[in-house]
Design a protein around this nucleic acid. Structure first.
Length: 105
DNA sequence: CGAATGACCAAGC
DNA sequence: GGCTTGGCCATTC
């Protein structure tokens, strides 16, 4: 599985997001770092936008704990998606990321 | 093939 | 203390 193409980055994003357990959250920066580029947090967002919707992007939030703005339906839609996953948000549309964040070993 | 974008992050004022 | 600007790196049109 030697893929010398840069698409390996995108491929890893899919893998990581797909491995996020329900009830947990991950930040774009964290995923980007796991993909090999800690500064490519925006790329993860770009992949999410143009990428498949089969993955639980709803479990992916910003490092600040706030939700993604470009999510289908907006922050409001994202909040409902999280609620469907069992993740509760506060009045500030933010989740307890410091507790729900999923750390990959 | 080249240029612009993009679901972010961090720092500055 | 909250908002603005710049930088960043890979993908997409």
């Amino acid at each position: 599985m030697s893929r010398d193409i840069d698409s390996e980055f995108k491929d890893r994003v899919y893998a990581i997001v797909a491995q996020i357990p329900a009830g947990r959250l991950m930040t774009y920066g964290q995923i980007a770092a796991l993909c090999g580029s800690p500064r490519a947090a925006r790329i993860v967002g770009g992949v999410a936008h143009y990428g498949p919707t089969d993955l639980p992007w709803q479990r992916v939030v910003k490092k600040d704990g706030s939700l993604a703005e470009g999510f289908p339906g907006g922050i409001e839609g994202h909040r409902q998606a999280l609620a469907a996953e069992g993740i509760e948000t506060d009045d500030e549309l933010r989740v307890d990321i410091k507790s729900l964040i999923y750390f990959i070993k």
